[in-house]
């Protein structure tokens, strides 16, 4: 019962926050609303018993990525509303209409609403999946396909660091 209430409260909160992010004119408020959505999503991860991912979600998304966004918004002084005018035309209405069509198409595509229940999996067995231990053992298990992507990710991050520094540098 508690999870049902938690789900609906968090669902409403996350949808409201993400709509607020799109609607508001002020980038700082957009960023704040998005942080709210991210924290709701982290709470969903905990409801789905993925505790490690939930912590990482907050650390990486809310703690690092969004702080970077805020930093850039403040650095470029885009925080005041009106620093960038939104185009006033039919476009938002058309975009919203198309978006709703997209959502309806997603929902009608079938498997979203009625998933086949996997045979022989009981909720009790879901529990240890999300702990740091389970994730670590699976991530570094040479018999599973995750070790190579993990190493590749480290190179990707290195390239991104170098790329960001070169991009943001004033003069080479």
């Amino acid at each position: 019962m508690a999870t049902v209430i938690a789900f609906w409260v968090l669902a409403i909160l996350s949808v409201v926050a993400s709509i607020a992010m799109v609607v508001t004119k002020n980038p700082v408020r957009s960023a704040l609303a998005l942080v709210g959505t991210f924290i709701c999503v982290a709470a969903f991860y905990i409801l789905l018993s993925a505790q490690f991912i939930a912590a990482v979600q907050v650390i990486v998304y809310a703690g690092a990525i969004m702080v970077l966004f805020l930093f850039v918004i403040m650095l470029l002084n885009l925080g005041s509303p009106g620093a960038l005018r939104e185009r006033g035309s039919l476009q938002p209405i058309i975009a919203t209409g198309l978006g709703i069509c997209f959502l309806i198409a997603l929902l009608l595509s079938g498997s979203l609403l009625s998933l086949p229940l996997p045979a022989g999996v009981r909720p009790a067995e879901y529990e240890p999946l999300g702990t740091v231990r389970a994730i670590g053992i699976n991530l570094y298990d040479p018999n599973q396909p995750w070790l190579f992507p993990f190493e590749a990710t480290s190179i990707l991050l290195l390239v991104a660091v170098i790329g960001a520094i070169i991009m943001a540098k004033r003069k080479v």
């Binding site: 992010m21 005018r85 975009a95 978006g99 997603l106």
Partner: peptide, 19 residues
């Protein structure tokens, strides 16, 4: 799906690349 759609609409509507 709903969150994804809101994201799509936002990409179409907004003019600020940060948003």
């Amino acid at each position: 799906a709903i969150l994804f759609t809101i994201g799509v609409i936002g990409v179409l509507v907004k003019r600020n690349p940060i948003v």
